[in-house]
């Protein structure tokens, strides 16, 4: 099962993992990644903007690609939008596969590609000041290794 969700509310990891496991279809491995809002440099809040419609279609495309490449029985991507505080979950990705290696690798690919391909934009707030986050070269390189392979 492919599950792609863009939501304002908090991400319930236990519920998401339970869905993946219930639908695993005999798979022996579920790998997941949780991204939290980093508390560095005095960030007081993070705001996520996105392109409704395109976001969901890009996430679904990334999920379908991973499912085909690693023969996954389940893929979940949940991404929050709106305002959130340091320590809160901003993104969750999970992959179910027969064995651990494809599950772990697929999970890495999901999050690497999401960072450079899905139309989300982050703005950090530090008290009254706000700043749009710039893309990182390291993220671009991390995503490229999955596309090149």
């Amino acid at each position: 099962m492919i599950r792609v969700v863009v939501q304002h509310g908090a991400i319930d990891i236990a519920a998401e993992l339970a869905l993946v496991e219930a639908d695993a279809g005999g798979a022996g491995a579920v790998a997941s990644f949780t991204g939290l809002v980093r508390a560095d440099d005095g960030v007081s809040a993070l705001e996520l903007e996105h392109y409704p419609g395109m976001t969901e279609s890009v996430l679904r495309h990334i999920a379908n690609d991973a499912a085909a490449r690693w023969a996954l029985s389940g893929v979940t991507i949940v991404h929050r939008v709106g305002a959130m505080a340091p320590g809160e979950r901003v993104v969750f990705a999970a992959a179910a596969a027969p064995h651990r290696a494809p599950a772990l690798e697929a999970c890495a690919a999901l999050i690497d590609r999401l960072k450079t391909e899905a139309p989300f934009w982050k703005r950090e707030r530090r008290g009254a000041a706000a700043r749009w986050v710039e893309p990182r070269e390291g993220d671009i390189a991390a995503a490229a290794r999955w596309v090149a392979g």
């Binding site: 996105h50 392109y51 899905a118 989300f120």
Partner: peptide, 10 residues
Amino acid sequence: VAIFPPVTGG
């Protein structure tokens, strides 16, 4: 047509 900065999600 949408115009925007490079994406920064995740």
